[in-house]
Design a binder for these strands. Structure first.
Length: 575
RNA sequence: GCCAGGGUAGCUCAGAGGUAGAGCAGGGGACUCAUAAGCCCUUGGUCGGGAGUUCAAUUCUCCCCCCUGGCACCA
């Protein structure tokens, strides 16, 4: 059955070039999107950039250009990187991709304002007060230099604000706040609602946070939740943002949350800025796709997505069944240290892809980390995993298979009408073992959860390739060829056995190509091309369907292509 | 200080009340279709430290140490 699968990533802040962490998240979501397409699901993959805010405003000023020009420049870097890495969000190849969020676009601004208006118009019965949003005056210490209010955290050991903040003055500021905690105007307690939701989802075996070891962390944070969320800034202080609707009064700009998070609604398929007006029966395009799986880093689970976003959705009228799932990934450290500008240990994915190729980078990012946990990035490990798993194991398997087929059969496969020579179960030459490995691997991939799909794919590759390489040694096609050529008593048996071995290897490669296609799309196409399989669908994702990962689809007499090294070994230079 | 995750072979990690596993790296061997790749065999660990429960703990309990997140407090 074709199921809709809506997947999003965090939108990246356009205040600096993308690093390996950005790349990891987008590739992870891309692999999941491709994985679901492979299963036949209908997929919408949304990613994009977060372009507003004070930091951007300041960076643009420093660079001496308009903020829009500044963010356009950085945005182009992200777009180019995703193209290089094969990150195919929905409509990636169009001039105006549906799956690309850019928060300075008019469409998004309208959606943000419509949502704010929706909450503003949700009045306490018989009054003119919004249930969710209220205005409050805050007094505090303001750093003119840093253009921000200071809290006690910023005070030095002597209780005073240090020179980096000066001059500091006391100021009053009016802002809008969004309720997160119980209030009589609200009529219920969002905090309790959220706790119940978290528990209910876990109890139902569908935890709101996956992998689920972070559920407790979120629950903890919710328990301690107090205070409401400031969602505005005076336009005098923050110019680069989305102005509040006029009904709120003049002079306010949205601050972060009602801008960035709302992108998931703005750019959702069947985009419905006024959610309340949607068809409650779930008939609209929007309702068909919602809710999404949000792929995010562990740094923005609490409080942004796990608290603010869920309560925002609740306020906007989304039901419990329409709450998203948060797929939370870990971070790549560098030699045990956190990646940071000050340490100067930022890994540039663009340069990495130029050096080793996009497929090598994708494979490494997917195979050397456990989804949800942190991992240590190492270029040596990237090279090692590429050489061992891709060049030596898979690439060489493809190469030796096609070479033998060319040498002994001019590339033409013979499919035996019956199970070959050696009955399944006896298998002294390993044939049936290989079939079993392929069938089981395909089943494991099909049944895997989003959290470990990438790993199941890796296991599948390993299992089938290893079994195939073993089969070559055990069956020794070169010996069979000699026996066949000798024309002796065993010639006919050797001939059939050699045909069987070659067919098994080709089939294994065909199935591997299908299974690895979410992680290694270009290589999967490369294998299909060399196998000379499905040429009519070249370049299209439709070449790969999980349903085709069954044994025996290559027909009798199939002509294989010419061998070309698919994964040239990466030779370690280094001094 | 509190909550969570983790400390298992050189490296990355799995595991589980009955005295430990995989992959890579290291060592040895046989082969030659192949990208000097592949295959087979193999060295290697007092399972963070200490105490307890048990016939038996690395696996359970308690205490301690270290790493990672989050929260809080002091400044």
């Amino acid at each position: 059955m074709s199921k809709p699968f809506f997947i999003t990533t965090a939108i990246d802040y356009t205040n600096g070039a993308p690093h390996i962490g950005h790349a990891y998240e987008k590739v992870l979501a891309d692999v999941l999107a491709r994985y679901h397409r492979l299963k036949g699901d209908e997929v919408f993959y949304l990613t994009g950039v977060d372009q507003h805010g004070q930091k951007v405003q300041q960076s643009a000023e420093k660079a001496g250009i308009e903020p829009q020009a500044y963010v356009d420049g950085i945005t182009a870097k992200f777009v180019a990187l995703w193209k290089k890495l094969g990150v195919e969000y929905t409509g990636f190849d169009k001039e105006k991709p549906e799956g690309w969020a850019a928060t300075t676009e008019a469409k998004h601004k309208e959606c943000v304002r419509a949502n704010l208006q929706l909450l503003w118009d949700d009045k306490v019965p018989g009054t003119d007060r919004s249930r969710w949003i209220y205005k409050k005056t805050q007094r505090g210490f303001y750093s003119v230099r840093q253009e921000q209010f200071l809290t006690d955290k910023e005070r030095g050991a002597d209780g005073e604000f240090g020179p980096e903040w000066q001059p500091v003055e006391e100021r009053e500021e009016e802002n809008f706040y969004f309720r997160l905690t119980a209030h009589e105007d609200l009529g219920f307690d969002p905090k309790q609602w959220l706790l119940d939701l978290i528990d209910a989802r876990s109890a139902a075996g569908n935890p709101i946070v996956v992998p689920d070891f972070r559920v407790a962390e979120l629950r903890n944070a919710v328990e301690k939740l107090e205070g409401d969320l400031c969602i505005s800034r005076p336009a005098s202080r923050l110019k680069w943002g989305i102005p509040f609707p006029e009904s709120f009064g003049a002079g306010f700009v949205t601050y972060v949350w009602f801008d960035a998070l709302v992108n998931y609604i703005t750019y959702a398929p069947g985009h419905d800025p006024l959610y309340a007006e949607r068809d409650g029966g779930g008939q609209t395009e929007f309702a068909k796709w919602w809710p999404p799986v949000h792929v995010i880093g562990k740094d923005i689970l609490i409080p942004a997505h796990g608290v603010y976003w869920l309560i925002m959705l609740k306020a906007l009228g989304f039901t419990d069944a329409e709450m998203p799932t948060l797929l939370v990934h870990g971070w790549w450290n560098i030699a045990g240290a956190k990646m940071s500008k000050s340490l100067g240990n930022i890994v540039d994915p663009d340069a990495l892809a130029d050096k080793y190729g996009a497929e090598a980078v994708r494979y490494y990012l997917m195979s050397d980390i456990t989804t949800g946990r942190d991992a240590d990035f190492s270029e040596e490990r990237l090279i090692q995993k590429y050489n061992v798993d891709l060049a030596n194991s898979l690439g060489n398997l493809l190469n030796r298979t096609l070479n033998m087929a060319a040498k002994y059969r001019e590339g033409k496969l013979a499919k035996l009408s019956q199970e070959p020579i050696i009955p399944v179960g006896q298998a002294p030459d390993g044939l049936s073992t290989l079939i079993r490995a392929a069938v089981n691997a395909a089943a494991d991939v099909e049944e895997s959860s989003d959290c470990d799909a990438a790993h199941q794919i890796g296991f599948a590759l390993e299992r089938i390739a290893n079994n195939s390489n073993s089969l070559v040694e055990v069956a020794a096609p070169w010996t069979l060829a000699k026996i066949e050529k000798s024309g002796g008593e065993d010639a006919q048996v050797a001939k059939e056995k050699l045909d069987a071995v070659l067919y098994h290897l080709a089939e294994s490669l065909r199935i591997i190509a299908i299974l690895i296609s979410p992680v290694l799309p270009k290589s999967a196409h490369g294998i299909f091309d060399q196998l000379n399989w499905k040429m009519d669908e070249q370049g299209k994702e439709s070449r790969f369907r999980l349903g085709d990962a069954v044994w025996g689809e290559l027909p009798d007499g199939h002509q294989l292509g010419k061998p070309t090294p698919l994964f040239p070994r990466i030779e370690q230079e280094k001094a």
